[in-house]
Amino acid sequence: MGKKVLVTGADGFIGSHLAEELVRRGCDVRAFVFYNSFNSWGWLDESPPEIRKELEIFAGDVRDPHGVRQAVQGCDVVFHLAALISIPYSYHSPDTYVDTNVKGTLNVVQAARDYGATRVIHTSTSEVYGTAKFVPITEDHPLQGQSPYAASKIGADQMAMSFYRSFGTPVTIVRPFNTYGPRQSARAVIPSIITQIAAGKRSLRLGSLHPTRDFNYVKDTVRGFIAAAESEAAVGEVFNIGSNFEISIGDTVSLIAEIMGVEVKVDTDEQRVRPVKSEVERLWADNTKARQVLGWEPEYAGRDGFRRGLAETVDWFTHPENLRRYKAELYNI
């Protein structure tokens, strides 16, 4: 409360929810959004007016070290969420993932070191674990880059932590498992399912149904970020932010269809299927460390919590003004 806080990627899915919650908690928030000629602030354009007027908007690009330095200057806490996140697009354009995710992270931690930020919360992803070698997955699980995206995030994590080890930069790594909720990109499976059903489709086009995921509602993810920033014991540490509940994509389809009151079947769309050795077959978070060190635990836990989160997500996506932003008929890589 009262801190000057920078959120990179504040125009995105998780970043916009985080920036809004920080404003509600009394923080002075500088929101780093991706510069564009439309002067779009991404999802922050949809923020309530009373929150939007409290935000200091900084338009730039994390790939540019000079702009990043300007954004970081004067900030006590840096939440670094800006990244390229689509796995299919990382097969298409892997070089951009190195520039944005690895070099962008270097720019952030370098600026934070130079300007003396008191905390840097760096965003990882459960994809860095690859297919689980043991479950539930602890923070000590081996890292496996099974896609260019995952490899770039491993590199970004290592870059961030190297600054803690080399220079004492107060870095904490938050590793969310599959976050879902209002505003999520249609590239993700849950919005893809919901928007296809909401558009009237009863034969859904999806990729593999057998992999399992640990879905984490966005409100829980945001609380995890803030808990990490508030804990002095979190410096130099990595934390899984997950629900500790495993469910297959196929069962997720069934649950969403049940919530939406429809019957559906699934047709496999080959362009949505990952290469065999690139598919992450199983993700299931052990969140013990976050519970013990951060005092964080998911409020949308287990099957009942997942159902509640999905119901809130469905309610948002099926609102006509929200649904029209999505192209349910297309595969978004």
Results as ranks from 00 to 15, higher is better:
320 P>L: 02
166 S>F: 06
331 Y>G: 08
303 R>S: 01
216 N>A: 13
60 G>N: 10
285 A>E: 12
97 Y>N: 02
332 N>Y: 14
323 L>A: 08
159 M>H: 03
328 A>S: 06
236 G>N: 03
68 V>L: 14
265 K>F: 06
35 Y>N: 15
135 V>Y: 02
159 M>L: 07
20 E>L: 13
19 A>I: 13
305 G>F: 08
9 G>R: 00
288 T>Q: 00
167 F>G: 00
250 G>P: 11
178 N>D: 07
222 V>P: 04
272 R>H: 03
307 R>S: 03
24 R>V: 15
223 R>H: 04
92 H>T: 12
304 D>A: 15
307 R>N: 09
91 Y>W: 05
116 G>S: 11
148 P>N: 11
98 V>N: 08
226 I>G: 02
24 R>C: 15
38 F>D: 12
51 I>D: 00
264 V>G: 03
94 P>G: 08
332 N>I: 15
28 D>Q: 12
248 S>H: 07
51 I>H: 09
147 S>E: 02
329 E>D: 04
97 Y>H: 03
288 T>R: 09
55 L>W: 09
191 P>K: 05
100 T>C: 06
90 S>P: 11
183 R>W: 00
321 E>C: 04
131 T>S: 12
146 Q>N: 06
188 A>E: 10
2 G>E: 05
298 P>R: 04
296 W>R: 02
247 I>S: 11
72 V>D: 03
312 E>C: 05
